[in-house]
Amino acid sequence: MEKLEATRSAPTAVNLQRQHSLATQVRREIERMIEAGELVSGDWINEALIASQLNVSRGTVREGCRSLQETGLVHVIVNRGAFVREVDAKEAAELYDLRAALFALAGRTLAGKITKTQITALTKMVSKMDKLAGTGDTEGYYRENRLFHDSLLEYAGNARLTEQYQSYARELQLFLRKALMKPGRMAESNEEHRQIVELLASRDAAGAASLMEQVVLNVKARLFGDS
């Protein structure tokens, strides 16, 4: 009898695992939509539409939304559904301060351990961004800029730091998508990148930390008119 019960319960466990996997896919897709600006702060998340697009059940979409609520990206209202959370200016400014502090820590950590291979990789990214800035390709520059920042965090080797930094970055996507810079600003931004690589290569931990903190605070100042 016990063997029969175990046999009957096995498919249920498999189904639950499959549903969890699908919910993770839904979560990633909604995150992508927010990042791409397809969903913005305050938008209602259409469960039926997403379920149809991804060929999953509405329950799976609902589970994905509940998961996103834990990250602060989505707000679920009983009997109304899930909405992209709204972040006001005060909260966004605080997130920039926290992000700046973490980026400084990444710079201080990385300066003492960066390898020649990593310096070469970062230098190549800076060169690529020079070309993108020269052609006015803001979307391309934005992607490469993100890769540069992500690489600095990865090279620092602190998984918890990276996780928290990326969490703040995702929440800031809810505030606005002004990260795309004007052509003139791209060249200025990339000069900061070049200086970061130089400071890291020279093992200047204090200098790298200071500049990497300032890079994030500069973005905050431009957005909130503090400069």
Rank of each mutant, 00 (worst) to 15 (best):
V216F: 05
E63A: 15
D97S: 03
A179M: 09
A93R: 13
S9P: 03
V76Q: 13
R143E: 13
L176I: 05
Y142K: 07
G72T: 03
E86R: 15
A205E: 07
D204Y: 05
M186Q: 15
D137Y: 09
E86M: 15
G140V: 10
A51P: 07
A208Y: 01
R108F: 01
S52T: 07
E213Q: 02
R28F: 11
A221R: 14
R66M: 13
F103L: 03
R143Q: 14
R85Y: 10
L98N: 02
Q53I: 05
L122I: 13
L122N: 12
D43Q: 04
G64I: 04
L172N: 09
N190Q: 12
M33K: 04
A205F: 00
R66F: 11
L180E: 15
V216T: 11
A106G: 00
D130Q: 06
K3T: 13
D97M: 01
F83Y: 15
S9V: 12
V87R: 06
E29H: 11
V87N: 03
T120F: 10
K182A: 15
Q195T: 06
E94M: 06
S151N: 06
S57P: 12
K116M: 08
V61M: 11
E63V: 12
G140K: 09
V40T: 14
G72L: 02
E188I: 05
G37F: 04
I50Q: 09
E139L: 14
N55E: 12
L176A: 14
I196C: 13
V219G: 07
L122P: 12
G59I: 11
K113V: 01
R108D: 07
A48P: 04
K124E: 15
T7C: 07
A10T: 06
K124A: 14
A106M: 00
E171G: 02
N145V: 12
T135Y: 00
K124P: 06
R143S: 11
E2H: 05
A208Q: 01
K3Q: 10
A169D: 10
D97C: 01
A82M: 11
